[in-house]
Nucleic acid binder design. Structure first.
Lengths: 252, 252
DNA sequence: CAGGCCAGTTGATCGAGATCAATTGGGTTC
DNA sequence: GAACCCAATTGATCTCGATCAACTGGCCTG
């Protein structure tokens, strides 16, 4: 009922490689950061960036390695710069709810909390900037515009969470899967990975745990969508043939 | 499948009456506000409060009246000072998901958004402070400590939302109802309404739409809990007899 | 106080999605 | 290329919660 490792190393799309790149020197990483404008750092000017960079540490994770785990003392906040991570909560008996997937530019900071309330680990090889909470807090407290930006990100996150509540509580399996595909495609487009084929780096188990379904139901639903010519299942993703139909399902 | 009016006038608890009170004069309301320390306003000193109060307008709603509706241009943010509100999203076909219940002290502000992403209306007679977004934004932008406070509130909200995702996606009906009772009791305790009997001002339909269940399942589950001596159903609420049991159900 | 209204409860049945159980197939190892 | 591994698919069956349908009881109205 749980987990799903997906440790197999998957080929990198050109896009992923590009967003990972700048880790050579210890200086000027931030100014060269490909996802800066997408991330909370987009609110920082050159001067702030230099100082911000000073409190950051780069971390790199292979697939299935943990960025942090629920219950640990929350000593750091993170900014994803490359790869894909899954964020999830577990029940004592092993039931799992994936509460989201993190993409480059996403900020993972459970700020006023003493412990992480969820776990995060890599699906595809992840790079992230790690900031000690104390230094991070100190930094933002004297930069109101930055705090404002973080607030916007938190609000967006909250809206997505509420959208997901509607999906989990009131939608059918078919609607859930369609909404997931449409939503995921939009998120990939947002970070510049807009292709005909929607890449799905996460396992079927991850998708099932995200949608509150079983792996079998996800699989069957995708298969049916393929039979009905809405999409084609390809290795590592799906190619959407009938987007309007998918979007109608996701909305209705 | 939708709605539930619950317009019947319910007796006020002393607590509710106390939190509603200060609406006589146009000055000094905030300094006398019973829920200030619980709300975002807890971060404001006397000087700030005076100015903050100047941009506020009091609104009062009878049960089932709307504070705002999803899709409307988001011209105001709100701070609940008395009563109970339900926050919900609707699907085109009428399916409803209650995404939360708002209590005195709760802040309803979908800040960087042009339109409300959910609807809010009164369950019990509601009083709230209404702030035009522009004035509100202007106010907070020059008060970083206030922004920090709002950020904390947003983060807490997000954590609750993620907790709710786990509940909606992975818990049984029994666990859902138990978790709801325990969580609601904790929220009432937080605003100072800590009594033996947990008051449930919302209808069974509201509870069902909050938990992703039907009204029948909620009713049957409560009845079963009563048969099993875990609680007693009383008018307007339940009396929890076996809290440890309920908490175990909610956690497991 | 008769009648109606509506929230809530209870019962009977149904069905979407879960569970159990093979089977397939791509990828890796030796 | 044989053996294996494991994610994914497919099939058969079951079950929890939904649906459909009365029924109850508190409360309001005339």
């Amino acid at each position: 009922m749980t987990a799903g490792c997906n440790c197999r190393s998957v080929e990198w799309t050109e896009n992923m490689i590009r967003t990972i790149s700048p880790l050579r020197a210890n200086f000027g990483r931030c100014t060269a950061c490909a996802v800066r404008s997408l991330s909370i750092c987009g609110a920082l000017d050159e001067t702030d960036l230099v100082e911000f960079e000073r409190i950051a540490r780069q971390v790199h994770l292979a697939p299935s390695e943990a960025l942090f785990s629920a219950g640990q003392v929350a000593s750091s906040v993170h900014n994803l710069t490359a790869g894909v991570a899954r964020l999830y909560k577990l029940l004592p008996d092993g039931r799992r709810q994936v509460i989201g997937f993190a993409l480059p530019g996403d900020f993972l900071g459970t700020m006023p909390s003493i412990r992480y309330s969820y776990s995060a680990d890599a699906i595809k090889r992840v790079s992230a900037c790690r900031f000690p909470v104390d230094a991070f807090k100190h930094f933002i407290e004297q930069r109101p515009h930055f705090l404002l930006r973080i607030n916007e990100f938190a609000s967006r996150e909250l809206m997505l969470a509420q959208q997901q509540m509607l999906l989990l509580g009131r939608r059918t399996a078919e609607e859930k899967v369609a909404a997931f595909l449409v939503g995921w495609r939009a998120r990939l487009a947002h970070i510049g990975d807009e292709r005909q084929t929607v890449s799905l780096p996460m396992s079927r188990q991850d998708i099932a745990d995200y949608l509150g379904l079983t792996i079998e139901t996800v699989s069957r639903t995708l298969t049916r969508f393929e039979r009905e010519k809405m999409l084609v299942i390809v290795s590592g993703g799906v190619r959407l043939l009938d987007c309007p139909r998918a979007e109608a399902m996701a909305a209705a």
